[in-house]
Design a protein around this nucleic acid. Structure first.
Length: 317
DNA sequence: CCTTGTAACCGCCACG
DNA sequence: ATCGTGGCGGTTACAA
C-alpha cells in the first residue's frame, strides 16, 4: 500500500516523519513490505521545513499522478494561512478520489479544507488553531478535543505528534491490534494516549460581556470559585430573575452560566493540581467540593483523571 | 451499579 | 406592535 504524505515548504518536519516512521516500523516488525511511504512536495528538490531541516521528497505534485492508498497532508506553523493553487487543489482532489482514505495532520487540515474534501466531516486539528478552522469552514464538524478522528475516508489528527497516534490507528485498522501494539512499543509511545488534546491547551479565553452587570458577575465569580455559584446565586448578584439571567448570560458570553463556571473551575483546578497540594484541597479551592466531583469534571472536560493529569503535568514526577 | 432528588436549561407564554 | 422580562413546566444531566 502506498502512503503519501504531502508537505509544503515551512512544514513541521515531525508531522511528516512521525507517521512515516510508524508505517516504516510496521514493515520492519512484520518483515514484509506492507507500506511504501512517500513524501510528496509542491516544489522540486529539497523541502525546507520550519525548523531549518530539509527533506528530500520522493515525488512532486507535477509528476504523473500515481495511485495512493492513503494520503495525508502535513501541517506547520504558517500552513493555516497558505492558499493552495489550482494545481495543488487538483492534485489533492484527484489523488484523494482514488485513495482508500485521506486526511491531514495538525494544521494540514487547513490545506485539506480548501479542497472541500472535509465538508460535512468530523475533523480535528491542532488545539490552538481549532477555533480558526471552525470559523473559516463552518461546514466542517470540528471536534477540537480529539487526538485523531476517522470519519469515513477522512482521517485527521491533532497537532504534530498526534500524527503518530493517527498513523498507529490506521495500522491497527490494516494489520490488527497486535501489530499496532508492537509498533507502538518499539517506538516507545502509547497505542492509545490518555485524555483529549484539550488537556494541553491554554485556559479558555475570557469573552468580555458588553453588559457591565454580566461582566461584573463574571469577574466576581472568577475570584470566588470556591463559593456558591449556583444560577440562583448569580442571578441574585446580577439582580435578575434566574430565567432572565440565564438568557442574558448566554447571549452575552456565548455559553450557559453553569458551563462558564465549570470552565473557570477547571482552569483553576488545572493550575492547583500541578502543585503539591492534596487533591482534596484542589477540589475544595476550585469549588468542586469533593474529589469525586473533581474527577467527574476532569472526565467530562479533559477526558482524563486528576491523578493522571497530575502525573503528566505535575512537578517532581 | 442503581435509585432518587435536584439543579440547569430551554421552550412557551404572559405581562408591562 | 416590539422588546425586555420573568414565571411555569418538561427534559436532561448530574450529585448523593
Amino acid at each position: 500500500m502506498r502512503v503519501a504524505i504531502l508537505a509544503f515548504p515551512g512544514c513541521q518536519i515531525l508531522d511528516v516523519i512521525g507517521p512515516l516512521e510508524v508505517f516504516a516500523e510496521v514493515n520492519r516488525q512484520t518483515g514484509r513490505d506492507i507500506y511504501q511511504v512517500e513524501i510528496v512536495s509542491n516544489v522540486a528538490g529539497q523541502l525546507l521545513g520550519c525548523s531549518g531541516i530539509s527533506l528530500v521528497p520522493t515525488r512532486a505534485i507535477h509528476d504523473p499522478i500515481v495511485k495512493v492508498d492513503t494520503l495525508l497532508v502535513a501541517g506547520g506553523p504558517d500552513i493555516q494561512s497558505r492558499l493552495i493553487t489550482t494545481g495543488e487543489n487538483r492534485w489533492i482532489v484527484e489523488t484523494a478520489a482514488d485513495a482508500r482514505r485521506y486526511g491531514s495532520i495538525c494544521s494540514g487540515a487547513f490545506i485539506m479544507a480548501q479542497t472541500g474534501l472535509l465538508s460535512g466531516r468530523r475533523v480535528t486539528t491542532h488545539w490552538s488553531k481549532a477555533e480558526n478552522l471552525a470559523q473559516r469552514y463552518p461546514d466542517i464538524i470540528l471536534e477540537p478535543d480529539a487526538i485523531f478522528i476517522c470519519d469515513g475516508p477522512v482521517c485527521t489528527s491533532a497537532g504534530v505528534t498526534a500524527g503518530i497516534d493517527l498513523a498507529l490507528a490506521l495500522v491497527e485498522d490494516d494489520c490488527g491490534r497486535d501489530v499496532a501494539l508492537k509498533t507502538a512499543r518499539e517506538l516507545v509511545v502509547n497505542l492509545k494516549r490518555t485524555g483529549g488534546q484539550s488537556q494541553f491547551g491554554n485556559d479558555a479565553s475570557v469573552k468580555v460581556a458588553s453588559s457591565p452587570v454580566i461582566a461584573a458577575v463574571c469577574t466576581w465569580l472568577s475570584e470566588h470559585l470556591d463559593g456558591d455559584l449556583s444560577m440562583e446565586a448569580l442571578a441574585t448578584r446580577a439582580q435578575m430573575s434566574a430565567r432572565n439571567f440565564s438568557r442574558i448570560f448566554l447571549k452575552e458570553i456565548g455559553v450557559t452560566p453553569h458551563d462558564f463556571v465549570e470552565t473557570k473551575r477547571i482552569e483553576l483546578a488545572r493550575k492547583l493540581i500541578t502543585t503539591d497540594v492534596s487533591l482534596q484541597t484542589v477540589a475544595e479551592q476550585s469549588g468542586f467540593g469533593t474529589i469525586a466531583n473533581l474527577r467527574r469534571a476532569f472526565a467530562r472536560r479533559l477526558m482524563t483523571t486528576p491523578r493522571i493529569y497530575r502525573d503528566n503535568f505535575g512537578k517532581g514526577k
